[in-house]
Computed example of a mutant assay.
Amino acid sequence: MAPLPALFNPAVQAVTARAFSAPSWARPWRRSAGHPRIAVIGNCQATGVAQALRLLLPGAEVETILVAGLDRRFGHIDRLARHLSGADHVFSHFFPEGFIAGGNVHGLAERVPGLRLFPTILFSGFHPDLVHVGDEASLRLSRLVASPIGPYHSAVALAGFRRGLSVEATLRLYTGPVFEQLGYFDLWQASADYLLRTARDVGFGLDREFALWCRGGVFMHVINHPRLPVLGNIARRLAREAGYTPLDLPVERYAPDMLAAEPVWPVLPGIAERYGVAGSTLFKGDGRRTPPRLLDLADFVAESFALYARHRPADLTCTRVDSWEAMPGIRALFDGAA
Rank of each mutant, 00 (worst) to 15 (best):
L4A: 15
F8D: 10
P10V: 13
A11C: 00
V12N: 12
Q13N: 12
A19M: 06
P23W: 07
S24F: 09
P28D: 13
H35F: 10
P36I: 00
I38K: 05
A39R: 01
A46D: 06
A46L: 08
G48R: 04
A50S: 10
L53K: 08
P58C: 11
E63G: 08
A68V: 10
L70R: 07
F74Y: 15
L80Y: 03
A81W: 05
H83I: 01
H83P: 00
L84A: 04
G86K: 05
H89C: 05
G98L: 01
I100M: 04
G103M: 05
V105C: 14
G107W: 04
G107N: 12
L108R: 04
E110H: 06
V112P: 06
L115R: 12
L115N: 11
R116Q: 14
L117M: 14
T120K: 06
L130M: 14
G134K: 03
E136N: 09
L144Y: 05
A155L: 10
F161H: 12
G164M: 10
E168R: 12
R172D: 09
R172S: 14
E180Y: 05
S191G: 14
D193R: 11
Y194T: 10
Y194L: 11
R197M: 07
T198V: 08
V202C: 15
G203W: 10
F204S: 13
F210C: 00
W213L: 10
R215Q: 15
G216C: 06
G216F: 07
G217N: 07
M220I: 12
H221Q: 13
I223P: 00
N224E: 07
P226H: 08
R227G: 05
A235K: 13
R236W: 14
A239G: 13
T245A: 15
T245K: 14
E252V: 15
A255C: 14
P256D: 11
M258N: 07
V264L: 07
V264R: 08
K284T: 07
G287E: 01
R289G: 07
T290P: 00
D299R: 15
F305R: 02
A306P: 01
A309M: 00
A314W: 00
L316T: 01
R320V: 13
V321A: 02
S323A: 15
W324C: 01
A326T: 09
R331L: 15
F334G: 06
D335M: 03
A338E: 10
